[in-house]
């Protein structure tokens, strides 16, 4: 069976570091899944994500997309087939919202009308009125609006895989909840594989069809949210779940 994403015994050690950021990791992701990758800072979750669009190259092991070893594919064409959203958002400040979203279609030399239609379609999908937002600059938007544009930009060329690296990490909690719900609805409406990195257990359990918990460069548990809550694999996972429960109890005191 061909998996959308497959890691085969992948290891990555950064120069000068005494440990491996990602340590002999193997797993598979099926098409259309929404995988959340959970772990504290430095656990290797971002490194793992960046090996999928080859911003990092593994030292050892293989990464396969739809059965093809990505080290044998041209890196630029690989990245153009993968949507990428990051916490810093990284909108191009000298380009308008419309031009930002149109960047990849332009690189792919789409016709002008097709690009313009796609930009409007994506703005609507992202909940931003095209006529109001198309010609604004990123600095004229709120953080939440900027990340909506970041998402729209990543979806521009209809990628099969979306990589999201703590996309809502710097966004206020009210807007974040709203964006999470919209992202879930978005994922439900398309046959895309999502990989979403976060350090927030509630976010991970809420969004993921399966959750991957990482610690010290290793995958500790990779299962459905329900299984993780019911059968934590080890003390680390248990402590994560308990921390989330304790937070919940904190709120219940005020009910």
């Amino acid at each position: 069976m061909v998996h959308a994403i497959e890691f085969r015994d992948v290891t990555k050690t950064f120069k000068g570091a005494g440990y491996s950021a990602v340590d002999h990791v193997s797993f598979t992701v099926e098409e259309g899944e929404f995988i959340t990758i959970l772990g504290s800072s430095g656990c290797g979750k971002t490194t793992l994500l960046k090996m999928i669009n080859r911003l990092y190259e593994p030292d050892d092991g293989k990464v396969l997309l739809s059965g093809t070893d990505i080290s044998s594919v041209d890196v630029v064409s690989l990245r153009r087939r993968i949507g990428y959203v990051i916490q810093q958002i990284g909108l191009f400040p000298h380009l308008t919202v419309g031009e930002n979203i149109a960047t990849l279609p332009k690189l792919l030399k789409w016709e002008k009308e097709k690009t313009a239609a796609r930009v409007d379609e994506l703005l609507i999908m992202a909940g931003l009125a095209p006529d109001e937002f198309r010609n604004r600059y990123p600095s004229q938007l709120s953080g939440g609006q900027q990340q909506r544009v970041g998402l729209a930009r990543a979806l521009a060329a209809d990628p099969g895989i979306m990589l999201l690296d703590e996309p809502f990490g710097a966004i206020d909690s009210i807007t974040r909840t709203k964006l999470q719900d919209e992202l879930l609805a978005l994922h439900g409406g398309m046959k895309k594989t999502f990989l979403f990195v976060t350090h927030d257990i509630e976010e991970a359990l809420k969004l993921g069809t399966r959750v991957m918990i990482m610690n010290g460069g290793k995958v500790i548990q990779y299962d459905t949210p329900e299984q993780i809550i019911r059968n934590p694999a080890d003390a680390f996972v248990r402590s994560l779940v308990e921390a989330a429960r304790a937070k919940e109890q904190f709120w219940e005191r005020f009910v």
């Binding site: 990245r79 909108l91 400040p93």
Partner: peptide
Amino acid sequence: VDKGVTEAAAGMGMTNLQILIKIRLPL
């Protein structure tokens, strides 16, 4: 130039030369 901006550019599949000309030079 903001590292987040250049990373986003690289991540979407711009070549180094495209990042230089379209992103870093104007900024």
